[in-house]
Design a protein around this nucleic acid. Structure first.
Lengths: 170, 170
DNA sequence: GCCTGACATGTCGAAAGTAGAACGTCACGT
DNA sequence: ACGTGACGTTCTACTTTCGACATGTCAGGC
């Protein structure tokens, strides 16, 4: 249940409303841990019930501003340090690769080429927001930079692999 | 719903029982699309109901051997070619990176070091089964080799990133 | 005064994934 | 004859995720 910890992490950085968090998820965590609005509001309710966060202010339009509690901070740290990250990552892209012999070689190569192009597009997109990431200087952004670099390297490797794999099919 | 296509893909390669598929998932697809036994048997039922697969033989211990139908093969091809793979991959490992400022630098560095070591372990493990992957010569294995190489490159990049990231924290 | 668009929260149902209990069979070694 | 372990299926219950819908408020421009 990492959605819970995503919310705690953002609230540890600064208090926010559900709507604020929704945007924060879309902006900074979109590529790492996407979440829908309904998921978010549901989790806020559960976190409040569990005493991990609390409503610290109410604004216009029923806006509720949430803040992390000491208990929530403890839980976040525990998760960061003590809970080992999941080792496997599902990839339907790679699952398809296993079964590529079911289509003819031309189509298989086309598939790999598309994947390569997609990786390059992702790479270009990342490069285009490099300025934004390197601009700010708060904690979140600082560590966001590490994640940014990860994405860069990952997509690079992916693009190269796709080119290599395409050549393997003959 | 890629579990469905994982099953279809394996059955396209050769007929098998639920139990056989379970082992096939554990062996070849474990790192790409893990599935539990209950999920598998459930999906076999649904696929049969949908006419994508059929029972072609019954063996001892209530064993049912499933084979893919023409309809199933069509669906598999459609998925392979027409359905674009998901672009985002959740990573709780990376999610933690965003919030690393919540623990002290020593702990943050330790976290990244552990991740680097984990990537290297994964790499070593892959290298150790290189012989197995390169041994066989059926279609599945041939394309499995492409996935294998992907894993190799990915973990390599991950290990390097982790080393780099660890140094960034000071 | 009215429309639009951003702000804001909430509920529902379906699909997908996780976890494990329960049950029975067959082959093999001792 | 007996136990063990691989083989094999089925069912239930829970959690997570997704997508859509419902509902309403406030600020600004025209």
């Amino acid at each position: 249940m990492s959605l819970r910890h995503g919310v705690l992490g953002l609230l540890a950085h600064s208090s926010a409303s559900g709507y604020d968090l929704m945007r924060a998820f879309d902006l900074s965590l979109a590529n790492v841990w996407p979440a829908t609005q309904s998921q978010l509001y549901g989790e806020l309710g559960k976190l409040t019930a569990d005493g991990m966060i609390e409503v610290v202010a109410e604004g216009p339009r029923g806006r509720k501003e949430y803040a992390i509690t000491a208990e929530g901070r403890d839980e976040l740290r525990r998760w960061l340090i003590d809970v080992p990250p999941a080792r496997v990552r599902r990839s339907d892209m790679l699952l398809r690769v296993f079964f590529l012999s079911q289509v003819d070689p031309d189509q298989a190569r086309a598939y790999l080429r598309r994947q390569g192009e997609q990786a390059e597009r992702a790479l270009a997109e990342l490069e285009s927001i490099r300025g934004v990431v390197e601009g700010g200087d708060d904690d979140l952004r600082h560590h966001g930079r590490l994640a940014f670099e990860y994405g860069l390297r990952l997509h690079q490797a992916e693009a190269e692999w796709a080119r290599w794999a395409e050549q393997q099919i003959s």
